[in-house]
Design a protein around this nucleic acid. Structure first.
Lengths: 138, 138
DNA sequence: TTTCATATTTATAACAATTATAATGTAATA
DNA sequence: TATTACATTATAATTGTTATAAATATGAAA
């Protein structure tokens, strides 16, 4: 995608085929993939790709605020290319993560903050997705 | 604490000194400690305590819904003995986690859920705590 | 273009958090 | 107090992630 080439130019970091492939995979991706999933996908067309590169690239993208690191899944980091404020719905069975694009304005009173400087919030809704619900009936 | 002895009896699991020591440490604890912190504290009075035991006990407590596992800190699991619905404020610098006891009633419309069965939610407020803010000024 | 300094990729080692295993020890019950 | 199932312990194994260092590729300048 040409858009992603521009994106890298704007970041003033070197544009490598590996970086482009990873950003292309992430762009518009709502699966909230882990490093493993990114590696598995991208290495199909890019057999020389190493896990280290995926970690490097993904960490670079996070540092440059192009991608968000999610700590919803306690076992592994997952990544979200959608940088605008939104929330997530997580299935406690299959760990699927879905976007929730609702604006909840959450206020925290000064006396609760006690000097804490608020920068944002993230809501995790949890429950069981319809797929897992169906499987349960067996 | 006698309360915690009762708690174990109610769970119908064996009451061991290790389990009691860990639950005693967690009870009323608002530090959201990691396994390492639990180990370090409890092993002071209990030198034979092993990391494996802390993991075992803590996982048992989570399974029996006496303690909650938090995946706020991407690097390690942290634990919260407060089982009533509440939220957290996390410092992005020092990873301190503080409780937020405000009831936000968050509604998700049916057409967004698409068959997902909601069981609860958890809000993570993030920012910089007053301690870290002070240190920054140096 | 070609050259060059620097950043990136790669393979692999190291590390940290967590789980699995197997031997030993202990709590609850009869 | 003897039995038995379950817990603890030490340690090995596993998994996710970061660090290292050599080889390579990129972007910019000549």
């Amino acid at each position: 995608m040409k858009e992603n080439i521009k994106k890298y130019k704007l970041l003033n970091i070197k544009l490598t085929p590996q970086r482009l492939a990873i950003l292309d995979y992430l762009e518009g991706n709502t699966l909230h993939p882990s490093v493993e999933q990114i590696y598995k996908h991208v290495s199909r067309r890019f057999p020389s790709m190493s896990y280290a590169t995926v970690y490097n690239v993904v960490n670079t993208l996070v540092k440059h605020k192009v991608v968000k690191e999610l700590s919803i899944d306690p076992d592994k980091k997952r990544f979200d290319p959608d940088m605008h404020t939104h929330h997530h719905m997580v299935c406690i069975k299959c760990k699927k993560i879905m976007d929730i694009d609702i604006d909840y304005s959450l206020h925290v009173p000064e006396q609760v903050l006690e000097g804490f400087t608020l920068m944002g919030n993230h809501i995790e809704f949890y429950g069981i997705c319809s797929d897992c619900r169906k499987k349960d009936k067996n």
